[in-house]
Structures are given as structure tokens and as C-alpha cells.
Design a protein around this nucleic acid. Structure first.
Length: 508
RNA sequence: GGCGCGUUGGUCAAUCGGCUAAGACGCCUCCCUUUCACGGAGGAAUGACGGGUUCGACUCCCGUACGUGCUACCA
């Protein structure tokens, strides 16, 4: 066990990269970095019926945005090219045949109709379907029931056929998992999975073990949904004669939906108003676009940090970790066994922390893409000033616009009624005088302005508190935002006077 | 249905036999702030159930319940 650590993330490019997928990438990445190993990205596109244009490129983009770039991939290349299973197609057949020759697999010629019939005919009760296994394979059309001659003829005639593993009877198959410890399976309950499909492509089961072997993978991390098929993989490692090279397994817990039960899905995100994909995904087949964490205004570091904590912690209570710190602290043994419900509020909290830890200047280029087009080119020093004023009330990058749009455009007043209720001629006169005073004052900074405002209010026989809120609503449009006089200082005299005048008109 | 996996506050979770059960998110109260936030101080809220083992069990074992995953020529 002193081989160089090599791990892989092996997605099937069929759509957006889901939270759970990114976390699997992350744990692979952390483990590889921690142990000075290699992180491989392998594209498992063996199902040609599920090909989705753009899905592969999307994965590369996601990993890059997350800052989790692989050392070897279809894009980058590496010592074990190609890294796409569709391009490795020709390599799998010989292993399937090797298994047939050794008596660990067989050819099966059953049509979909025949399979369907078998599943119904041999089921033990109404709730289940029969498996293709030791009980039923003797009743099907395969090289176990057909003579060698018949089998040969069928194959030579080009009869569609698959290769199935011949699962042994009465064995206990043990999977030793780094997270869960020992799990045992009764081989009598494992079915004869297809290894090589009729189109010549391997199934996942054959492809993972062959490629993990060929690519010298030492540790295989994947979602918990794979645990039930682990015995098939164990058997394959054994039958192919690679038992000593078998990677160590770790089956990661699932990420569940926040409410109710079940695995988190794209639909839940839509229903509950949060993303489940890392980045925006456009499905060219269904022609629908799904927004992602990036579009929502997450910083990749925060997104990664949040994901790391969903199912793992270092035991100290620390929650904020840089990627480098995660690399140092991460250990697969501390990953939980149980699934975690995703909590979007907590996710936002992580992002808030990261935003607060950045200076306004650092935030300028990050916030800019979330500005509406008309203001995307806003002056950087203005932007920096605004960001500095509002960042502590922003959790997402897109919050900067909702919290600060009034710095850039005259707002629509949504809370006029709150002013109107207590409006008076005295106040009207006061605000007119205040606007006039703004134009002549030489000391245009928030502290001086506030003092002037207070003094004038008193002179007009008004309480400062009675005119603060009206001023805020005139300038901001609603009851929110940073200090009113900071706002006056930033938007400047002309704009402030204009908004006051506009509001006075609206109140008339 | 079968098989696998899991189960500490609403959520994420610490604990690896000594618990008066950390911490974080969220929620509530108060302070700060003549707005809303931020920040500060408090608060409510937890071991699924039943048996064992043990001086002692949230921690170990066995059942039960519940949840979840798989049960495709999909991954």
C-alpha cells in the first residue's frame, strides 16, 4: 500500500452537475492533494442513448469554476489517454471475453420481450420482479443453456447479444469501505449484470473496474447509491485477476432534500427557490435552462466550503476553511455515514462570511457581473464606495444590486404612504430648504451633512427623527439601506436634490 | 416485496462508556442603530422505540419502527 494515490471522478455527462456530484469531486480532490496523489477526471459516456451535447464541456467549466481542476482529463490528457470511455470502447471487449473464457461470464441472446416475460413469470410476489440470476439463467437463451455450436452460430450470424457476469452461488462478498467498514452481501441475491451491451459498449460495471485498473486508481469514492452494486465490482476485480490492485472504496452519503424525504433533485430546487447545480445548465434537448449557485451569486470558495461541511467536519467546530486548509484537515474516515438534508440558509451564511472577509476593492470585479447591463460599466471607485457601504447586508453577489440599486438609479418609491401619512407643509418647507442648503454647503460629507440636517430640523421646529425616515424614503425608495447621509454623500448634491423634489411632488 | 445503508434539537453536527449532551444555521428576546441590516448579550429546542451488556450507555449488542438507496443492455 505504498503506491502513489490516484483517485478519479467519473461522471456521466447527461446534464447539470449536481451538489452531490461537486461534493464527490471535492472529496476526491482533497484526498488526492492531501496525499500528494493524482486526481483524474474520466468521462463515463457509455450510454449512447443518453448523449447530451454540451454536457461534457459543462463539467470542465464547473470544475474550473470550483477551482478543482483535475490533473488528468479528456481535455488535459495524461498518461492513460483516452479519458473518455466512448473512445476506449474497443478495449473492453477482450476483458469481457476473458471472463467468458474463464467461465465467469456468458453470452446472452434474450430479447427485451423475453427479459420482460422472465421478470414477470418468475417473480416470487406481486411487489417484486425476478432477477436474471442463478435461478432464471437456466431458463433463458444464453451460452449456458445453448450448445457451444448454437452459440457460435448465433454470434456468427450477428445475433444481438450481451455478456453477463455469472455470479457464483453461496458466497459472501465483503466490501470493506473506508467510511462504513465492512458490508457483506449474499451472492445468491446478486443478479447477473450485463457487462457488455449489444452495441459493444461496456456497462458501468465493466467499465469502472477495467478503467480503474488500467488507470491505476488506488481509492474509489462514489455516491452511496453504488453500494448495492459493489459486490459485482468486487467479483470482477477478482475474476479479472486484479484482486491485489483493487482500490479502497468509500461510498459517500447522499445529499437529501431539505423538506420531506428523498434525494435532492433539480425539481426541489425549483420548488424551493434555490439552485442544485453548480452553474447554469442549458439542456439543449429539453430546451430548458436551470440556474446554478454561480448565477445566484455564490463565491466558489464559499460554495466549496459549504459543500465540504455537508457530511464532514474536522471535529473542532471550525466551519470556515480555505481550500488549502481543507486539504490539510480532510480525512475520509471522518465523513459521515448518514445523508444530510441540504439547508440553503446555511449555504447563504457561508457565502456571507466569505463576502465579509473580502475588501470592497476585491469585491468590485466580482460584483460587476451581477449588475444590470446599463450599469455594468459603472466607475470602479464609485462601485467600491457603494460596496463598502452595503456589503455587510449582502449574502449573495446578486444582493449588491438589490441593496444598492438606488446609488445608480433614481428609485421608484415603494413606501410613499409611510411618508404621506404624516406629511405637512412644515415638512415640505423643511425639505425644500434642506435641498437648497445642500447646493450651497461646502462641507459635503456625511457627518457634516447630518449635523446640518439636525440643526435645520430643530430650527424648523421639527424633531430630527420625524424627518429622517422621510428623507430615507425619498432617496432610497424604501425603509432599508445604509446611513442616509452616506447615501447623500455618494449620490451627490444634484441627484439628492432631484429625488427630494420628485418626492415632494409625489406627496402634493 | 427483497437486499444494502442510515437514525443526537427544525437543519448541519461534536461526543469514539462518565453528559449537568459542544458549536453553527434558523427562530425568539434585549442592546446597538432615529431605517433595514451587521454586530453584541441572552433564550427556547436534541439522544426514534424496546430489550440486553455494564458500577455506569447517546456511545457496545439484539430486535422493532422510521427514513433512504438499489432491485435496467442508466449511470
Amino acid at each position: 500500500m505504498n503506491k502513489k494515490v490516484r483517485v478519479r471522478f467519473a461522471p456521466s455527462p447527461t446534464g447539470g452537475l449536481h451538489l452531490g456530484g461537486v461534493r464527490t469531486v471535492l472529496y476526491n480532490y482533497l484526498f488526492a492533494r492531501k496525499h500528494g496523489g493524482d486526481f483524474v477526471l474520466r468521462i463515463e459516456d457509455t450510454d449512447q442513448t443518453r448523449f447530451v451535447p454540451g454536457a461534457e464541456e459543462y463539467i470542465y467549466d464547473c470544475l474550473e469554476w470550483c477551482g478543482l481542476s483535475p490533473d488528468e482529463s479528456p481535455l488535459k490528457g495524461g498518461p492513460f489517454v483516452p479519458y473518455k470511455q466512448s473512445e476506449r470502447k474497443s478495449g473492453y471487449k477482450k476483458y469481457a471475453e476473458q471472463l467468458v473464457a474463464a467461465g465467469h461470464a456468458y453470452y446472452a441472446f434474450d430479447t427485451p420481450e423475453e427479459l420482460e416475460h422472465m421478470r414477470n413469470a418468475y417473480r416470487v410476489d406481486a411487489h417484486s420482479t425476478a432477477q436474471y440470476d442463478k435461478n432464471t439463467r437456466t431458463k433463458m437463451r444464453n451460452s449456458l443453456t445453448l450448445s457451444a455450436e448454437e452459440t457460435k452460430t448465433l454470434i456468427e450470424n450477428g445475433t444481438p447479444h450481451v455478456v453477463r457476469i455469472k455470479v457464483p452461488e453461496n458466497q459472501t462478498i465483503v466490501c470493506n469501505d473506508m467510511i462504513r467498514g465492512v458490508t457483506q452481501f449474499d451472492s445468491n441475491l446478486v443478479d447477473d449484470k450485463v457487462l457488455l451491451k449489444a452495441d459493444g459498449m461496456p456497462t458501468y460495471h465493466l467499465a469502472v473496474v477495467v478503467d480503474d485498473y488500467l488507470m491505476k486508481i488506488t481509492h474509489a469514492f462514489r455516491g452511496e447509491e453504488w453500494l448495492p452494486s459493489a459486490p459485482v465490482h468486487m467479483l470482477l476485480w477478482d475474476y479479472l485477476g486484479w484482486k491485489d490492485e483493487m482500490p479502497q472504496w468509500a461510498h459517500l452519503p447522499l445529499i437529501l432534500k431539505p423538506d420531506g424525504n428523498g434525494k435532492l433533485s433539480k425539481r426541489d430546487g425549483e420548488r424551493l427557490g434555490f439552485p442544485v447545480f453548480a452553474m447554469k445548465w442549458h439542456d439543449p434537448i429539453k430546451n430548458e435552462t436551470t440556474s446554478g449557485f454561480r448565477e445566484m451569486g455564490f463565491l466558489p470558495e464559499a460554495f466549496i466550503n459549504m459543500l465540504a461541511m455537508l457530511g464532514w467536519n474536522d471535529g473542532t467546530g471550525t466551519e470556515i476553511f480555505s481550500l488549502q486548509e481543507l486539504v490539510e484537515k480532510f480525512s475520509i474516515e471522518r465523513v459521515h455515514k448518514g445523508g444530510a438534508k441540504f439547508d440553503f440558509e446555511k449555504a447563504k451564511w457561508f457565502n456571507h462570511q466569505y463576502i465579509q472577509n473580502k475588501s470592497a476593492a476585491e469585491l468590485v470585479p466580482l460584483v460587476r457581473p451581477y449588475m444590470p447591463e446599463a450599469h455594468a460599466g459603472a466607475d470602479s471607485s464609485l462601485l467600491e464606495q457603494v460596496i463598502g457601504l452595503i456589503k455587510d447586508r449582502c449574502s449573495l453577489l446578486k444582493d449588491f444590486w438589490v441593496q444598492g440599486s438606488f446609488f445608480f438609479e433614481t428609485p421608484v418609491i415603494t413606501e410613499l404612504q409611510a411618508v404621506k401619512d404624516k406629511w405637512s407643509d412644515t415638512k415640505k418647507v423643511f425639505f425644500e430648504q434642506f435641498a437648497a442648503a445642500l447646493k450651497t454647503t461646502t462641507d459635503f460629507n456625511h457627518a457634516a451633512l447630518e449635523q446640518m440636517f439636525g440643526t435645520m430640523a430643530t430650527e424648523a421646529g421639527l424633531k430630527k427623527g420625524d424627518v429622517m425616515l422621510p428623507l430615507r424614503i425619498m432617496l432610497v425608495g424604501g425603509k432599508f439601506g445604509p446611513g442616509v447621509f452616506n447615501i447623500v454623500e455618494v449620490i451627490g448634491c444634484d441627484e439628492a436634490c432631484k429625488r427630494i423634489a420628485l418626492a415632494i411632488d409625489a406627496l402634493a
